[in-house]
C-alpha cells in the first residue's frame, strides 16, 4: 500500500488541471522553502530546532489547500509545509524562524509555534500530541456556534502512542464533533522506527474501537490525499463526527537539521525518492494531459524566487522589542 510500486503514477483521481497546478505550486513552495532552510539553519540565521518535511509535501498540500481561512488547522512540530499550504506568508514565516519582529508571531514562537489566525493556522506544539484536543475543542465551538466550521489537526505516527491521543479520539467520538485528524505516518517517531514502538500496523487501526471512521492512503500521492481529505471534509462540513485520515509518507531528511540520521540505515531513501510526490504528480499530469514537465520547472523557479524574496525580507527585519515579555505574557 505504501506508495505502490516505485514509479507508479497513481490514479490522479479527483483532480482537474487547475487543482493539480495549485497542488504542484504548493508542493514546490514547501520543497524550495525547506531546502533553503537547511543552509540557513546551518549558518545559524534560523534558530533552534528545524524540522523539515521534505518528501511529505503531498499531505500538507492535499489537505490545507481545500480549507477556508475560517477552518482552523492545528499543526505539529514539523509545521512549515502546513503553514505555507494554509496561506501563511512565506516572508513572515521565515522572519518568524529567524526570530525577527516581522515574523508572524514577532519572533516569540519560532518554528514549532507558528500562528497566523487570519489564515486559520493555529500553530503547533513542541510536545507530541499536545494539541490534539485543541482541534476537538475548536470543532466543538464551531458546532455550538452553529457554523459549518470543522477543525483539522496534523499529527505523526509517534503521537498515536500517547495517552492524549486515545483520550482525544474517545471524546471526539463521544461528542461527535466535526474534526479531521490527519496522521502523517512517516514510519519514524523522532529517531525510532515504528516497529520499535508498537505492534499496531496502521494508525487507522486505532480508530475502529472508538467508532471513528478512518482511511489510509498513500500520502506521497497528492491525488489520493486530496480525494480522501475531500471526502472527510465534506462529511465534517455536513456536521458528522470525527474522521481519521492516515497518510503513509516518508521524510527524506532527519528528525531535525543536524540529526546524524544513523538510525535510518535500514531505510531505503532511494526507493522513496522514486515516490517523490512532486515527480509523481508531474507524471500523472502528463498522462492526464494537464501539464508537462516544463510547467513543473516553471513552478519550481517561481517558488525559488519567492524563497529568495522571503530571505531578503526576513534577513532585513529587526529583532523584536524587549518589552514584549511584559506586554504579552498575559492577555489583558
Amino acid at each position: 500500500m505504501a506508495g505502490g510500486a516505485a514509479g507508479d503514477p497513481g490514479s490522479g483521481g479527483g483532480l482537474d488541471a487547475a487543482v493539480a497546478e495549485r497542488l504542484l505550486e504548493t508542493m514546490w513552495r514547501i520543497r524550495a522553502f525547506e531546502e533553503r532552510l537547511e543552509p540557513l539553519k546551518r549558518s545559524s540565521m534560523v534558530l533552534g530546532l528545524t524540522h523539515l518535511s521534505i518528501g511529505q509535501e503531498a499531505v500538507a498540500a492535499g489537505v490545507c489547500t481545500q480549507l477556508r481561512d475560517d477552518e482552523p488547522v492545528y499543526s505539529n512540530h514539523r509545521a512549515n509545509g502546513h503553514a505555507l499550504a494554509k496561506g501563511v506568508d512565506m516572508g513572515r514565516l521565515l522572519a518568524e524562524l529567524m526570530g525577527r519582529a516581522e515574523g508572524c508571531c514577532r519572533g516569540l514562537g519560532g518554528s514549532m509555534h507558528v500562528v497566523d489566525v487570519a489564515h486559520g493556522f493555529l500553530g503547533a506544539t513542541g510536545v507530541v500530541g499536545g494539541n490534539l484536543p485543541f482541534a476537538v475543542g475548536s470543532a466543538l465551538a464551531g458546532r455550538l456556534l452553529g457554523q459549518d466550521r470543522p477543525a483539522v489537526v496534523f499529527f505523526g505516527d509517534g503521537a498515536a502512542q500517547t495517552g492524549i491521543f486515545a483520550e482525544t479520539l474517545n471524546l471526539a467520538s463521544l461528542w461527535q464533533v466535526p474534526v479531521v485528524l490527519v496522521c502523517e505516518n512517516n514510519g519514524f517517531a523522532e529517531f525510532t522506527p515504528r516497529s520499535a514502538h508498537t505492534r499496531v500496523e496502521r494508525v487507522s487501526d486505532l480508530a475502529a474501537p472508538f467508532r471513528v471512521p478512518a482511511a489510509t492512503v498513500d500520502g506521497n500521492d497528492v491525488a489520493q490525499v486530496h480525494a480522501a481529505f475531500a471526502h472527510a471534509l465534506a462529511l465534517a462540513r455536513a456536521g458528522s463526527g470525527p474522521f481519521l485520515l492516515e497518510c503513509l509518507t516518508h521524510r527524506l531528511s532527519g528528525h531535525y537539521v543536524g540529526d546524524p540520521g544513523g538510525y535510518r540505515a535500514a531505510v531505503e531513501d532511494e526507493a522513496w525518492r522514486a515516490r517523490d510526490p512532486i515527480e509523481r504528480l508531474v507524471r500523472q499530469a502528463a498522462a492526464a494531459g494537464w501539464f508537462d514537465a516544463e510547467r513543473s520547472r516553471a513552478a519550481e523557479a517561481a517558488a525559488r524566487d519567492e524563497v529568495e524574496a522571503a530571505v531578503a525580507f526576513a534577513a532585513s527585519s529587526p529583532f523584536p522589542d524587549l518589552g514584549l515579555p511584559a506586554e504579552l505574557t498575559y492577555a489583558r
Binding site: 485543541f134 475543542g137 466543538l140 465551538a141 492524549i164 474517545n170
Partner: peptide
C-alpha cells in the same frame, strides 16, 4: 466527561481559543 483530564483541559483550550 470521561476520566480524561488531559483531553478535558485540551478541549477547553481549543474551545477557549475559538471564543468560549
Amino acid at each position: 466527561t470521561p476520566i480524561s483530564e488531559t483531553a478535558e483541559i485540551g478541549i477547553a483550550t481549543g474551545a477557549a481559543v475559538a471564543g468560549y
